[in-house]
Nucleic acid binder design. Structure first.
Lengths: 187, 187
DNA sequence: GGACCCATGTAAAGGGTTACATGATTTC
DNA sequence: GAAATCATGTAACCCTTTACATGGGTCC
């Protein structure tokens, strides 16, 4: 049982779903491809943490609906009693920043402008998602309270990072331009 | 050449270092164990991106100092021209939040209080680190500009997340307590 | 005496991505 | 006609962690 497995259990405790649906719901908070999720669900079914049922569809491909078992619920409760391990972030831009000084202003600006667009899209996505949530999800006790606070977290982080890119871009724009030539200009 | 390799190259472009030192410097921004870094450095030496030299020490174990080659510098420049891929974060607390509603207030509070301490420590670490940096590192063109803006980014994110935990903890504390018993109390 | 820091490495196992494989329906 | 969405699965490869292995010096 790895962390992602518990995440899938957590989503299934809320409502029975297909692997495809779980993938879409977990994506904004934990990147995982279908090729990782489908085998995990199978293994969890073998371990009696889940039950599976095929549901026929006419317009779309048939789907396999998973539901959590009492044993799965028990494991979830046990997991919730343990402290959460520390978050891990991997960001290529961070490593590129280490050697910003070897590059020119325009290359640097291109990197941060692209990232700025990414954060802007994140802000938009989470603002919309939060806006659509009913008021009862803002209360502890609601089944959607967790999702609500997670979206607020993601929005806050995206805004903070967006401000950071703006700040960096401004510094880059105001930086002294490099010497055009090593020789002094005569006229 | 994976992303971590470029990160190590980026640090080595700044100054020649041992694998152990690279590990310590990259840790705050990209989690990687020594068991991953040492073999990577060896492979990069084979590929002529780095040169290695043993330096004898009397009080401490001997160390292997790596330096970037012109070929390594060329690869770094090429990498800087490519857009940075999107950041990936994996946070167990996020998955636990999905099923907050199956648990009680105290369990939830314990999770967020622990995380709050983590963010507080991060804020302290990055504040100190920024405070110690010389003023010239605040300018694009300085070799430490990248490190300076990264620490500002990390500080901003940690503060945003700290505020978030405080907000969640307050909501939890103010939440209606659960019924003590399913039977009405007589007196 | 035990724990921690310095310093390097290998091996095994687990986590995650990319590619391969299929196929109907809908949208541009 | 091409691309995207829905839907599931396997196989190969790469990335990352944990564990094994060594050994001197310092601090409590």
């Amino acid at each position: 049982m790895n962390t992602l497995s518990y995440g899938l259990l957590a989503l299934l405790a809320r409502k029975r779903s297909s692997g495809y649906d779980l993938m879409l719901r977990i994506q904004p908070f934990w990147q995982a491809k279908h090729s990782q999720i489908y085998p995990l669900l199978s293994r969890m079914e073998e371990q009696q943490l889940l039950t599976a049922e095929w549901v026929k569809q006419t317009d779309k491909p048939d789907k396999k609906i998973y539901a959590i078992t009492p044993l799965g619920e028990q494991r979830l409760h046990e997991w919730m009693q343990m402290p959460a391990s520390e978050p891990v972030t991997r960001d290529e831009l961070v490593l590129k920043a280490f050697c910003l000084w070897i590059t020119d202003k325009d290359t640097a600006l291109a990197l941060f402008r692209k990232r700025s667009i990414f954060y802007q899209e994140q802000i938009h996505y989470f603002e919309q998602a939060i806006h659509k949530m009913p008021d009862e999800s803002h209360q502890f006790g609601s089944q959607d309270f967790g999702l609500y606070i997670l979206r607020q977290k993601a929005l806050g982080t995206a805004r903070s990072n967006m401000e950071w890119t703006t700040w960096v871009i401004d510094m880059l724009k105001n930086a002294a331009p490099p010497e055009v030539s090593s020789e002094p200009q005569h006229h």
